[in-house]
């Protein structure tokens, strides 16, 4: 009997104390070195050192893509987007660039030109005015429409020629800007690599480009809270979603903007009006690929709601939440299946 009690005691105590051992733990890593935004990596591992080692590998890849895709700086020994924009001659580049640019052309065709990586000449004007306006709010100004129209003459996507690994811009005034695609494309490529390497049970969030990689080992689904741009104190998150092996990308007018005479001007520029696209506070796109979701969220931001809804219905595996400027939510057909 004594023995039985001892066993019972050991068993109960072990239940109480080791309930947490050998279990997967959730770890998070924040970094700020890639794509001029905040990156968070969430992963479930039993051992923190495994998580850290995986994060280092993931961040090395992010660094590599960032160096290749940036239009803002030159790196020694690397032909990147900045090099293409300043070369004025055909340039041999890494396959990661040509594949991304090829994908960009596909997205241009798919969205009827609403996502155009050859719009750099226009976007760089807005970028400069925005940066100056943020640094010096009292002198914040809007770019002149004449200057924008002049720049818009040099945004023909056909001027972007890709032959093998050689890229050229046939119009010397033309510039690439991959801001609407590069983050999502890089995130997707890294997620695919992780799946191949067996690094699963992770969630990547590169500046709002969210991609889940594998399931959580605790059997729960990934939960993603979409921020409510309406700012209602009572209901901060506009939606809680559950995703599996999928991406969600949000384009929002509140993410990057500047203020001119009390009015906010955000960073998503409509290729037709050459002005910040009107109509939405945010557009969130669910698609298995974060590259596609990223491109579509920008494109849909520049389409009116009816056109956008029709467009989404023509696509496979794509669900969308639009929040219009009046704060109303609009859903694509099966978006609600993802709401928790």
């Amino acid at each position: 009997m004594k023995k039985a009690i001892c066993l019972c005691l050991t068993f109960l105590l072990s239940l109480t104390f080791t309930g947490c051992r050998e279990k997967y733990e959730k770890f998070t890593d924040y970094s700020f070195d890639y794509f001029d935004t905040a990156t968070s990596i969430i992963g479930f591992e039993k051992d923190e050192s495994v998580f850290k080692a995986n994060c280092e590998k993931i961040k090395a890849k992010l660094g590599e893509y960032h160096k290749l895709y940036t239009i803002y700086s030159r790196y020694d020994g690397v032909n990147n987007l900045y090099s293409i924009n300043t070369a004025h001659t055909p340039l041999e580049v890494d396959g990661k660039i040509t594949e991304m640019l090829q994908f960009s052309k596909e997205m241009y065709d798919l969205t009827g030109g609403k996502v155009n990586v050859a719009m750099g000449s226009v976007l760089s004007i807005w970028h400069n005015y925005r940066t100056q306006g943020i640094d010096n709010p009292l002198e914040a100004r809007l770019p002149d429409m004449d200057i924008l129209r002049e720049a818009a003459k040099h945004t023909d996507i056909k001027g972007l020629e890709i032959k093998g690994n050689t890229v050229s811009l046939t119009d010397p005034e033309s510039r690439l800007d991959v801001g609407a695609i590069a983050k999502g494309y890089a995130t997707e490529q890294i997620a695919l690599w992780m799946e191949k390497e067996g690094i699963t049970g992770y969630l990547l969030n590169v500046g709002g480009n969210i991609r889940t990689v594998g399931n959580r080992p605790d059997g729960k689904k990934w939960q993603i809270g979409l921020e409510n741009p309406n700012g209602e104190e009572s209901k901060k998150y506009s939606e809680y979603l559950e995703l599996t092996d999928s991406a969600i990308v949000t384009s929002g007018s509140y993410q990057r903007f500047y203020t001119v005479q009390g009015k906010e001007y955000h960073h998503i520029i409509d290729p037709e009006t050459l002005m910040p696209a009107k109509g939405y506070k945010m557009v969130s796109v669910i698609n298995p690929s974060s590259a596609v979701a990223d491109a579509l969220s920008t494109a849909l931001f520049c389409m009116d709601l009816n056109d956008g809804k029709k467009f989404v219905e023509s696509l496979e595996n794509t669900e969308v939440l639009w929040i219009t400027e009046d704060g109303k939510k609009h859903y694509s057909k099966n978006f609600k299946d993802y709401i928790k």
Binding site: F32, A38, S40, G225, N228, K236, Y237
Partner: peptide, 13 residues
């Protein structure tokens, strides 16, 4: 907005 639930974040880029 203020945060209170586990997992919610505020980022100053």
């Amino acid at each position: 907005e203020a945060i209170s639930k586990s997992g919610e974040t505020i980022v100053c880029l």
